[in-house]
Design a protein around this nucleic acid. Structure first.
Lengths: 356, 356
DNA sequence: AGCCGCACTGAAAGCGTTTTCCCATTGCGC
DNA sequence: GCGCAATGGGAAAACGCTTTCAGTGCGGCT
């Protein structure tokens, strides 16, 4: 007496995707033969049948069901890319490199944004494991000391045959890309000290991040060697963003007005500092204060004055990371150093003469 | 006599992923029960067994095999995001919005970069169809007149139950977001005409793009209404990038040196134009030439002078696009207008007095 | 001429889930 | 105290594909 029409069959028929079975039928061959033609099997099929299958597949716009395929082959053509903030040029650049290699290898990229929550990072790795992703790339810098939860999750992933490449991480038993952060920090110290700066402020991102630590320590190390001491009073910690940099610059100058040079640990913060110096503090760059960034984002040469910064080949890092993860599994874990390079532009000059 | 050990079993055992079967065994229950506990089934299971299963699953670090799940449910939690260039702030911003909604709905995002090749776009949609993606978002502007191949592919995708949302496309029978491009172009015309400019140059992206057409026509239309005629001589077409904008600006000023205002059809091109005016042409902005962009990328307020531009709420567009694609299927296709807004900054002033 | 081996096709197994279907057990009303 | 509905558990089917295994027809060799 149910007045609903076809309630039973209405549920499980939402999709009308073409199956291989239909293609086979249409071509008048068996399922097996159709499969052999359409998946690049090592078995060969007569020209005649091959054409019939291809034709039928094209006519029906058949595409093979990737999940079904993944199920039987227990692998996919998916790679995961985990970043902290999608809308950050640093990650965009790395992502571009990853996408390029992915395209060449016919891989699909799953993009996961952690929104800076470490918990989400672990969750995403788990979900990528569930997807049977072939590889995962951790593009965002890790935390010093590592995270046990992440380590466990990655172990489970690799145990399952997944590959992992991490950028600027520590203590993970996976392929790792080590950007020249320390080396870059040293170059900045050398540059600023060479110009004659003795009172230098440093605007740091979260000190828990490996990249931040490396950049900072490289800088402090070399500065000390050159006789420039940067006390903790001249360092501030803030979000690794433009706004973080802006606020940090204001705080820093309120505290230590005598600073003649500013090292922001990434370009985003440097941009914020530039804005603060111009709009909030009314100081000229580089006439009053020299500013240095890190990363060499494309925007660095569009601001005024053009930003002196340390170039990291981010796209290259992305490419290399994926290639590493796609490469010889038996050689893993490997580490790959990617050098950085100081790019001097207009935002740095010798310090102004002391008045009086 | 084969000396190779276990050659047979070495091949098909690369992965040792934990299966539901193992969890069930470990918990001492049937497969069905384990499934009911771990997938949010409507059937309920005794507290006792539930705990045993949960415990076993946690102990074994079980995650369910997504492809297998997808196979039986014939749907996934994957959404595709198709952009032209990953490393373009316009798309990063849209992607950020998409990711945000995806996170809230527990969806995974597959990012596809077409590298400006229309062929790749169609291929990616096909691959997303193969993946049984729940929805696809076409973030990159479409071509005027549309593309039959793309239309067919999208038809196949929707026929299969997939949802589609497109940004700035025309003639597709899918949910579409219409950014206020025309309206933004009109606002620019009004602004520049209002300042007194009469000789205005326009730097266009590829004229085949819907966004370019809309922005351009909105501008020309309103300019004409206000008595300002922009001949074809004052328009150039180039790549929709910084470099494209730079080259275009040089070409344009070589041809028509009397131009007092420049409208670049996106911020990337405007940045290039700014660089050209400063470095190649030696003209002051805004003293000699006023410059207007489009999009209001974050960088627009970091350049000097800060760029007058049209703000498009890109993250919002990303969010809306995904929500549209996730929304009521029976209401599709729908169109959603997203307004733009002129943001006046320092790069525009009245034209310089004519000398002599 | 008969047999063997080769080259190809087709039937069927199996991948790991979810979901039906069926059975046993319990609680309830009479 | 008996039957019935309701409840919860397990066996098995199904999802769409790849791949093994068996089978069939053919040519070449003795």
């Amino acid at each position: 007496m149910q007045s609903q029409v076809n309630r039973r069959s209405a549920r499980p028929r939402p999709s009308s995707a073409v199956t291989l079975q239909q293609v086979a039928q249409d071509a008048g061959v068996s399922l097996a033969t159709a499969s052999r033609v359409l998946s690049d099997s090592d078995r060969n099929v007569t020209q005649e049948l091959q054409e019939r299958v291809l034709e039928a597949a094209a006519r029906l716009r058949y595409v093979s069901n990737a999940p079904a395929r993944a199920l039987v082959q227990s692998t996919t053509s998916i790679v995961g890319l985990v970043v902290h903030d999608v809308n950050d040029a640093y990650y965009s650049a790395i992502a571009a490199g990853v996408m390029e290699v992915a395209r060449d290898h016919k891989l699909l990229v799953m993009l996961a944004g952690t929104f800076h929550e470490p918990g989400l990072q672990v969750e995403y790795v788990a979900r990528l494991r569930a997807q049977r992703a072939r590889a995962v790339i951790l593009a965002g810098s890790g935390f010093t000391g590592g995270s046990p939860a992440l380590t466990q999750e990655l172990d489970a992933f690799t145990a399952q045959g997944g590959r992992v490449a991490a950028v600027a991480h520590q203590g993970l038993a996976v392929d790792t890309i080590v950007p020249g952060n320390r080396e870059g920090g040293r170059a900045v110290a050398e540059h600023l000290a060479g110009l004659g700066h003795t009172e230098i402020g440093v605007i740091c991102g979260p000190l828990a991040l490996v990249s931040v630590q490396d950049r900072l320590h490289g800088f402090l190390e070399r500065a000390a060697e050159l006789g420039v001491v940067v006390t903790e009073h001249h360092r501030v910690e803030a979000d690794f963003t433009r706004d973080g940099g802006r606020a940090a610059a204001v705080r820093l100058f309120r505290r230590s007005p005598g600073i003649t040079a500013l090292f922001a640990l990434n370009d985003a913060m440097a941009l914020g500092a530039l804005a603060a110096l111009r709009d909030d503090l009314g100081r000229g760059v580089p006439s009053d204060v020299s500013v240095v960034g890190f990363d060499d984002l494309p925007v660095a040469c569009d601001v005024t004055p053009a930003l002196t910064t340390v170039r990291l080949p981010l796209e290259e890092i992305g490419r290399r990371a994926l290639l590493l993860a796609l490469g010889d599994a038996t050689a893993s874990p490997r580490t790959l150093d990617v050098p950085s390079r100081l790019v001097v532009r207009a935002s740095t000059t010798p310090p102004p003469r002391v008045t009086g």
